[in-house]
Computed example of a mutant assay.
Amino acid sequence: MSKPPLLQNSLMLAPLIGATGSLVTALGLWLMFIVVISVFGLGMNALRSRLFPGAHLLASVLLAATLTSCAELGLQVWSLQWHQQAGIYTALIALQCVVLEQAGFFQRAWRDRLRLCGLFGALMVGLGLLRELMGNGTLGSHLPWLLAATQADWQGWVLTTDGGLRLATLAPGGFILLGLLVAAWQARQRAPSTH
């Protein structure tokens, strides 16, 4: 299997850093990504054989923009607070769909697609969890947003009463934490096994 394209990976970096300030935002964006990309893949598989090769890009842009816009409208109705927290990162899902289509992602085996979506989700949720723990000292803060509940007094599980390191919830803190996680991963991979 060849290496994935650089653009495909770099587009995933923006929501990975920007939308993982809390566990709820990361989990919600990943769920939205899975829904939109799944419906997009089904739609493009149905349309691909019926279109001229020159029309594939235009069709994928229109379909991705339509699906992402519908998902955003549904998200606003479901939970306006979560939608405001997710910001512009939900719109990047449309761009990601188009790039994945052009890279041939939807023609790959379903296991490869599932692996990439699962890895992206694990990174999103893991980074969101770590950043919320380190930055706010809470776990599951604003969880009712994903459940469309308006219970404003629930603050999640508070682990430290004085909060945490505010830098961890900001984008620079996300870059720093991701860099440390990548360095730890590379150090683990290079460590000689002592069997």
Rank of each mutant, 00 (worst) to 15 (best):
1 M>F: 00
3 K>D: 07
3 K>R: 10
4 P>S: 03
5 P>N: 14
8 Q>Y: 06
12 M>S: 12
15 P>T: 06
15 P>S: 10
21 G>C: 11
21 G>T: 07
26 A>D: 06
27 L>I: 08
32 M>Y: 04
33 F>A: 12
35 V>D: 01
37 I>A: 03
40 F>L: 02
41 G>K: 04
43 G>Y: 01
44 M>L: 06
48 R>Y: 02
49 S>E: 08
51 L>F: 00
54 G>Q: 04
55 A>F: 06
55 A>V: 03
57 L>N: 02
58 L>E: 00
62 L>D: 01
65 A>V: 14
66 T>E: 08
73 L>V: 15
76 Q>M: 04
76 Q>S: 03
76 Q>P: 00
82 W>R: 14
84 Q>A: 05
90 T>N: 10
90 T>M: 12
98 V>H: 00
100 L>R: 05
100 L>H: 03
100 L>S: 06
102 Q>K: 13
106 F>W: 11
109 A>K: 15
111 R>H: 14
114 L>Y: 00
117 C>I: 12
120 F>G: 05
121 G>V: 07
123 L>D: 15
123 L>T: 14
124 M>W: 11
124 M>V: 11
132 E>T: 14
134 M>N: 13
135 G>D: 02
135 G>E: 04
138 T>P: 01
140 G>Y: 07
140 G>M: 04
141 S>F: 15
144 P>I: 02
144 P>E: 08
144 P>Y: 06
145 W>Q: 05
149 A>T: 05
150 T>D: 15
150 T>M: 05
152 A>M: 11
154 W>I: 04
155 Q>V: 07
155 Q>N: 10
156 G>E: 03
157 W>Y: 14
158 V>A: 08
163 G>E: 01
163 G>V: 00
164 G>Y: 05
165 L>D: 05
171 A>M: 14
175 F>I: 01
177 L>Q: 04
178 L>V: 09
182 V>T: 05
182 V>F: 06
184 A>D: 08
184 A>R: 03
186 Q>N: 11
190 R>W: 08
190 R>L: 15
191 A>V: 02
